[in-house]
Computed example of a mutant assay.
Amino acid sequence: MSKLNHSWFSQLPIKNIENYQPVSGGDINEAYQINANGKTYFIKAQPNHPADYFRHEINGLKALGKVVNTPTPLYNGEIDGNAYLVLNWLNESFGSQADLGRAVAKLHQQTNDQFGFVDNHQTKVLVKDNSWNNSWSDFYVNQRLLPEAKVAAERGRWSRWREEHFKQMVKKFEQYYQGHEVKASLLHGDLWAGNFMFAGDHEPYLIDPDAVYGDREFDLAMTTVFGGFDQEFYQAYGEEYPFTPGINDRLPWYRFYYLCMHLILFGESYGPAVDRILEQY
């Protein structure tokens, strides 16, 4: 993104920029550290997008930020066709997984009367439909699973075997939730180890949310996909907000969502993990 030169940075609403340098910020956005007036900022930029590209993240940070530590959205706009979001800079430190567990449990205790969120989320491969829904089962099947399977098929990452077992999984899911009520908890929405950090006074921070009100087990399933959360995390979480018995039987249909998304994005190297879940149904 060659447009991000001195002249681009000089148009930001931050005055007296002393310097800026690229930092690692995930695979979706360009990310920079900016120093100005003795303060440090973190900026994400997305080429060829309007300012509202970051709306979902901003709304998520604001919702989560009422309950847990998050970066604060400071400025958002568009310069020369590139969207940007400026956040306060967090100095990374180390901290306790137990504190992280308590923070996530506290987040999940914030509830809503419907499932969904205030806006949709544009990802690389599809728009996540967050329209409000009274039924968790309907929301998860029709606003998450089915659109994902459709894209997997369009990308040539699907098979008859996967389709048959997927249908069985959906059937089991729907049958289970016919008789079990779910609270609409405020979720981070992408809770893997890359999206928490310890900063400042060793406190846990949640970053890069894909916020949605849903079954808290959807968030908890993500913590088990790629690791990075230890026994202390789960113990502290469970003391703060006890797990619903039988949770381990239900996590696979939520892990499926994340692993299938990786199958779509990164290819057949994620196929075996997806199939290991599907063969349970």
Rank of each mutant, 00 (worst) to 15 (best):
L100M: 08
D113F: 11
H180D: 08
F117Y: 04
D113G: 12
M169F: 14
L146Q: 13
N91H: 12
W136T: 06
V170H: 06
H180Y: 01
E154G: 08
G95Q: 11
K172Y: 13
V125K: 13
D201S: 13
F198C: 04
D138L: 04
F117T: 07
G101Y: 05
A98V: 07
F115D: 12
S96A: 11
D119H: 12
S159F: 01
A105L: 07
Y213T: 01
L220D: 01
H188Y: 04
H165P: 15
A149D: 13
G116F: 01
M197Y: 08
R157A: 07
W89N: 05
R155N: 10
E164D: 15
N91Y: 09
A105E: 04
Q97R: 03
R102S: 10
H165S: 14
Y176A: 04
V141G: 02
V141I: 09
L220A: 06
R155H: 12
A98W: 04
W136M: 00
T111R: 11
V125F: 15
V104I: 08
L87R: 05
Y176D: 06
A221M: 05
T111N: 10
Q122W: 14
M197H: 04
Q175W: 15
E217L: 00
F117H: 12
A184D: 07
N88I: 03
A152K: 05
G200K: 10
K183L: 08
G200A: 06
W136R: 00
M169W: 09
S137A: 15
F173P: 04
R216P: 07
H121E: 05
F166R: 02
E163M: 07
V212Q: 06
D210V: 15
T111H: 09
L191A: 03
F166V: 00
D208I: 03
E154D: 05
D201L: 11
G200W: 08
Q175T: 14
R216Y: 05
V86H: 06
E174L: 03
A199N: 04
W132N: 05
K171Q: 11
H202K: 13
R216S: 08
A184T: 06
R144E: 08
L107P: 03
K124S: 09
P204F: 01
R144N: 14
T123N: 01
V125Q: 15
H165C: 13
R160E: 15
K167W: 06
R155T: 10
Q114F: 15
E203R: 14
G95T: 07
D215F: 00
P209W: 00
E163W: 06
